[in-house]
Design a protein around this nucleic acid. Structure first.
Length: 689
RNA sequence: GGCGAGGUAGCUCAGCUGGUUAGAGCGCAGGAUUCAUAAUCCUGAGGUCGAGAGUUCAAGUCUCUCUCUCGCUACCA
């Protein structure tokens, strides 16, 4: 406990600015960080916690197009909304920034240029195929044509899978874009890749031994199993080069001559936002940001969800190390996912508890949600939130155990000692001693758990003190003792009050509002964490009044919340769907040959989870079509069905099977698939137009 | 398909480097109690630790096979 870093920089994953915040986000990356940081602040440690909105990327431009507005308008709206959601749950960042700010753009460009100068990227200026329809450059794999060696006509730009020859895309005869089918143009472009394979050796040492550049850096045993497991699996599997730029018009422009229409890959740009945010925090507070990112005595901790592990543990560290001068993460305590009422949380299906709606429905009751989420936090495996469980925890634990304990102590003191802290004799019984010892070791137990990112454990320890307090009162029965021994009654209540004051401190990270109310009533506000463990409330201290700390959650409230899950009634008439594609021509439509066909045989493609190999009868031939529907349909379910076939689609080899056409499917809102089946009477071979 | 993490009492979950009768909270049953928000406290019932095999004096804890869940990844024309 004595050794600790000189300062700690904490980050939480930058939330993506195209949707509201729900409890899955909160429990994953924000509440744990908030608990950790509140604890460190209470210990008077030097800690800074930064976060911000991740505002770039293609999804935001798509959303803007759908809503008929600009990306700027979208990110501005969510930037405000997300901050309000965090405030509502008392998620208290030291600084919340955004990646679309001029400062961030400038910093990200500078960082990119430094990497470029240091040779961190492989830069390739070369001619590359460009799809004029999709208006973007095509990776080798997205070009297909006839193999110059074996005349196989499904060869990819990098390799012919028929004869195994390695190819360059320009060698292909009659190349086509696999995105649009258009004939690509041969144009100059520059791409910047991060060759991650160069970094495998030191990454392995860093991850497995916790050593960096020959020095002990962190304790790998302190990392969560699932985090290390996933990282090792990546490194052991061999790291690939990753393009660090994208062809988009919304993002941080690549700061290189002639790179118009290119932006930094969001995964490069977003984590740099942590640094920008730290800089802006420092400027706001008139201090220096550099020690937080560069001093050897600083500890860097990233709080994220499990979907972000590889980026924070592998790619970002590579970037930081290549740049030089920056610290690498000392721990990445990623949480797993929070499920909801038996199902995955889903934004599009409105299967979520939105932070903002919770606060609207339960105003002033942020502590309750914080408590429940901390109790069930998905620290080592996925967790499950249900409203029934929420009700039980709030009612049984917060109201009955904590709230009632506080109330008993205050009422008894009010009744017997006029609301003033009675003087203790100092003669403690064995029972008293046992409780005092528990009180003495609880702060360390809670703190140790928090420092190990075991927040549920920490909360258990803190609540354990309160439970012991209830037990103490029941066993010592001051309401009986008062009749015969006023001093003994004073001793009992004095100790019960000390327990209450201690509980206020150790519960403060979890229940900041409740803790503040309690401390205010006891006159122990502003006591630091390290004061806890002993007597805190001075004799004679008049106690303030406290309203009931926690209202019970009613069955009606539970029912109403469950009712809100699922598709919104208002949305049922007007669906939230992908925007319509830009206009096409009648000629383009005419170019497609759509036919009625019948499935005569079906089998799973071996080695593929999602692929079904179908044999379809078109009336004029029988052919093989590979379709990605195996997760929705068993082979026997599809045999005999009449389907809509795009018959003249260029053949393509998928998983070793040549697919001659495409079966049209409707994808439903819940992620399911339905065949587009012609009405009775249509026969295989009938033309659809 | 490859890889990773999980599968422990009715529910939500702990069980660190293998070692006496497998734990907590909630729920349930019985009892005690009344200062308190019908709150509290005590006692108890409940588990072949996903299935099967193996290593060991000893396995929830190590190895192998299988199975289910979640994630990453490839293939979804």
């Amino acid at each position: 406990m004595s050794e600790h870093p000189a300062r700690t920089l904490v980050t939480s994953a930058l939330p993506y600015a195209n949707g509201p915040i729900h409890i899955g986000h909160i429990a994953g990356a924000y509440l744990p960080a908030d608990l950790y940081v509140r604890y460190l602040r209470a210990r008077k440690r030097d800690v800074v916690w930064v976060c911000g909105s991740d505002e770039h990327g293609a999804a935001i431009t798509l959303r803007a197009r759908k809503e008929g507005t600009t990306p700027r308008a979208i990110v501005d709206r969510y930037h405000e909304e997300m901050q309000a959601a965090f405030r509502g749950l008392d998620i208290a960042f030291d600084h919340y920034d955004r990646t679309s700010s001029p400062q961030h753009h400038a910093f990200a460009q500078e960082f990119f240029l430094t990497l470029l100068e240091k040779g961190a990227f492989t830069e390739e200026t070369r001619k590359q195929f460009f799809d004029p329809v999709e208006n973007q450059f095509l990776a080798d794999r997205y070009v297909q044509g006839t193999c110059p060696k074996c005349q196989h006509d499904g060869a990819f730009g990098d390799q012919c899978e028929k004869c195994g020859s390695a190819l360059s895309p320009e060698e292909l005869i009659d190349p086509k874009s696999t995105l649009s089918g258009a004939t690509p143009e041969w144009k100059d472009t520059t791409l910047w890749y991060l060759p991650m394979d160069r970094h495998e050796d030191w990454l392995r040492t860093y991850l497995e031994q916790g050593d960096l550049e020959g020095h002990a850096h962190h304790d790998p045993k302190a990392w969560k199993a699932h985090v290390l497991g996933q990282c090792k699996s990546w490194v052991d599997g061999g790291l690939q080069s990753r393009a660090m730029t994208r062809d988009l018009d919304w993002g941080v422009p690549v700061p290189v001559e002639g790179a118009d229409g290119k932006v930094l890959y969001v995964w490069l740009d977003a984590p740099l936002g942590y640094i920008t945010a730290t800089k802006n925090w420092a400027e706001k507070n008139g201090t220096d940001w550099e020690p937080y990112w560069k001093d050897k005595d600083t500890q860097l901790v990233h709080f994220i969800g499990k979907d972000n592990i590889v980026f924070h543990c592998i790619i970002f560290p590579i970037l930081l190390k290549e740049h030089g001068g920056y610290l690498l993460p000392h721990n990445v305590p990623a949480n797993e996912f929070m499920n909801l009422e038996g199902d995955k949380i889903s934004t599009s299906r409105n299967w979520a508890v939105w932070a903002k709606e919770y606060i609207d429905d339960f105003p002033g009751r942020s502590d309750e949600m914080r408590y429940v989420l901390a109790s069930i936090m998905p620290e080592q495996k996925d967790a499950e939130f249900t409203w029934e469980d929420f009700q039980a925890r709030v009612n049984n634990e917060l109201a009955d155990v904590l709230g009632n304990f506080v109330n008993r102590v205050l009422v008894l003191t009010g009744k017997y000692f006029d609301g003033k802290v009675p003087a203790a004799s100092g003669l403690w019984t064995e029972t008293d001693q046992a409780l005092r010892e528990l009180m003495g070791r609880t702060p360390a137990a809670v703190g140790e758990s928090i420092e190990r990112y075991r927040f549920r454990d920490a909360l258990q320890h803190a609540m354990g003190l309160v439970r012991a307090g209830n037990k103490y009162l029941t066993e010592e029965e001051p309401w009986k003792v008062i009749k015969s021994d006023a001093q003994r009654t004073a001793d009992i209540l004095n100790l019960a009050l000390q327990v209450t004051a201690n509980a206020a401190i150790v519960l403060a990270p979890f229940l900041p509002r409740t803790s503040e109310k309690l401390s205010a009533a006891l006159g122990t506000s502003a006591l630091p964490w390290d004061a806890a463990g002993g007597d805190l409330v001075p004799t004679g201290q008049p106690l303030g009044t406290l309203p009931i700390l926690f209202d019970k959650v009613t069955d009606e409230q539970v029912a109403a919340q469950r009712e809100k899950l699922g598709p919104d009634a208002a949305e049922l008439g007007l669906r939230d769907v992908e925007p319509e594609k830009p206009g096409t021509s009648f000629d383009d439509f005419q170019a497609m040959d759509l036919r009625v066909a019948e499935v005569v045989a079906a089998e799973k493609v071996k080695g593929a989870d999602k692929l079904l190999q179908l044999t379809v009868r078109t009336g004029y031939d029988e052919r093989t079509v590979v379709s990605g529907i195996a997760e929705h349909f068993a082979p026997e379910d599809v045999v005999g069905r009449r389907v809509t076939l795009l018959a003249n689609l260029a053949p393509r080899k998928i998983r070793g099977v040549v697919s001659q056409g495409m079966v049209l499917m409707a994808s439903t809102e819940d992620g399911g698939l339905r065949f587009v089946t012609p009405e009775e009477g249509a026969e295989p071979g009938d033309i659809i137009r």
